[in-house]
Design a protein around this nucleic acid. Structure first.
Length: 103
DNA sequence: TACAGGGCGATTG
DNA sequence: GCAATCGCCCTGT
């Protein structure tokens, strides 16, 4: 990390993430914006990437602005995220994410 | 110290 | 709706 500003940013990102309701998703950019810096979307990815595998944080509720899973299809992380999302009412087709009850 | 890479975003064709 | 391009900022080697 470079300074305490980014440290604070990370903290806020985790905070916002921890407060996401079940069935609700957000994007990296949105998360970054809520944490105070819209440009740090990329950093959000870095942060989530470093989270421990046993974290309680719903990192899988975060997708990119295209409503797509950023992982490559077939990877372990991709599979985990897909499963988690499907358990919360989402459908993942390829890398596209959509609501199960959406019209 | 320097450089390439990364779970992205927004814009344009 | 998809692909290409540019911009942004931290991390790891």
């Amino acid at each position: 990390m470079a300074n305490q500003e980014t440290e604070a940013f990370k903290t806020r990102v985790l905070f916002v993430l921890a407060h996401l309701e079940e069935g609700e998703i957000t994007s990296y950019g949105e998360l970054a914006r809520q944490a105070g810096n819209a440009r740090y979307a990329r950093l959000v990815g870095q942060i989530l990437k470093k989270l421990p595998s046993d974290t309680h944080l719903p990192w899988y509720r975060v997708v990119n602005s295209q409503h797509r899973i950023s992982f490559t299809e077939g990877t372990d992380a991709y599979a985990r995220q897909k499963v988690k999302l499907e358990q919360e009412g989402w459908i993942v087709v390829g890398q596209k994410l959509m609501q199960k009850e959406a019209p």
